[in-house]
């Protein structure tokens, strides 16, 4: 009981309210807007200090767009992003630069997120050059310190990204993200491109750093087993909306939304003994296009439990237990 109270007292670091991102579809010679892709369509969540909040979903559900919007790397259409009690969407460029020191991002593809023409020293020191007034010596000491934190050494300083393996490049990306001592790091599929044995190295590193610097992570991934491993709280997205959200234990042990259930039962479990015992819910069909999402509940076209109501009205969130909630008519 005591622990619950302490957890509730954790401060909110970021509050996202009704975040929307609609991309216009332009057609014809004059680029007339003929429609919209509703990549993110009204997403709200709160991230507490020091926790790992995961957003999980399949491709096209809008999870990466949420990640990019949080840093305003893509401009949200509407909504509020309150970080440290300030609304990020009201800020101008200079104010935003100041605020962004505290929010960093790690990407999935380490080939395209590290400049191939820069040495590791230049890549990692770039945030320092922009945001801190440091002498060259100070900078070098800081870069070496960062390299050491992520398990690389001084001999890597003057090498180029192509000389590193995928796992090492991800370490460089992490070092760069850490350079300014951020409070929040958005991790956009940081281990999806890595082999299993390297993936576990990076996941452990992320957890160590979190403990050391009391970091908050927003972890975006499609891999449920990774998400279960690393998260404190989880949000499941489908076609631009969060369909279920709650603590890791609640969402994984007691999933309520049919989509969450189907998603979990689809993950192959690496244990042949469970092969025949497992109840599989196999969904039919594909994810509908966000250009033209189905009316009512977005999931009703694939849902095995749908009713007439589902095709008409988008369900409200229902509270299940604590902050565990799901948007479905049949719960």
């Amino acid at each position: 009981m005591e622990q619950v109270i302490i957890e509730n007292e954790k401060e909110d670091l970021m509050v996202v309210q009704e975040l929307k991102k609609h991309f216009p579809i332009k057609n014809g010679v004059f680029g007339k807007t003929t429609g919209e892709v509703k990549a993110v369509d009204g997403v709200s969540f709160t991230v507490k200090k020091g926790e790992t909040f995961s957003i999980v979903g399949e491709s096209g559900c809008g999870k990466s767009t949420v990640g990019m919007s949080l840093l305003r790397l893509t401009e949200p259409t509407s909504g509020k992003i309150i970080f440290n009690e300030e609304n990020m969407l009201d800020k101008n460029r200079n104010e935003l630069r100041d605020l962004r020191k505290n929010i960093q991002i790690i990407f999935q593809d380490t080939y395209s997120s590290l400049n191939p023409k820069h040495t590791i020293k230049k890549i990692i020191s770039e945030p320092l050059v922009i945001n801190r007034k440091m002498t060259n010596e100070e900078m070098e000491t800081r870069v070496l310190e960062l390299l050491d934190l992520v398990g690389l050494g001084p001999h890597h300083l003057y090498r180029y990204p192509h000389e590193f393996s995928g796992g090492q490049r991800q370490r460089i990306g992490i070092a760069r993200a850490l350079a300014l001592n951020p409070q929040l790091i958005v991790c956009d599929e940081p281990v999806s491109a890595l082999d299993v044995s390297i993936q576990s190295q990076i996941l452990n590193l992320l957890e160590e750093l979190q403990k050391k610097f009391n970091l908050t992570y927003i972890f975006i991934s499609h891999d449920l087993s990774v998400v279960e491993h690393i998260s404190d709280r989880v949000a499941v997205m489908y076609l631009g909306r969060i369909v279920e959200m709650g603590s890791r234990e609640e969402v994984f042990q007691n999933p309520q939304h049919p989509y969450t259930k189907a998603l979990m039962s689809s993950v192959p479990i690496a244990d042949p003994k469970l092969k025949d015992k497992k109840q599989r819910i196999i969904l039919t069909g594909d994810v509908p296009s966000p250009k033209n999402p189905p009316k009512g509940c977005h999931f009703h076209t694939r849902c095995p439990f749908k009713t007439e109501k589902c095709a008409e009205i988008y369900p409200e969130y229902k509270e299940i237990k604590g902050d565990h909630k799901a948007a479905c008519h049949i719960i």
């Binding site: 393996s165 796992g167 082999d195 299993v196 044995s197 390297i198 993936q199 576990s200 190295q201 996941l203 452990n204 957890e207 449920l224 087993s225 990774v226 279960e228 491993h229 890791r248 994984f252 979990m264 993950v267 479990i269 690496a270 244990d271």
Partner: peptide
């Protein structure tokens, strides 16, 4: 053995992952 231990598995308790050091 290392491969099996290092992949997080759905439904397993939250603990430090086993690591195979180094790379191929």
């Amino acid at each position: 053995r290392g491969l099996m231990l290092s992949a997080p598995r759905l439904g397993s308790p939250k603990e430090k992952l086993h690591v195979i050091d180094g790379m191929v």
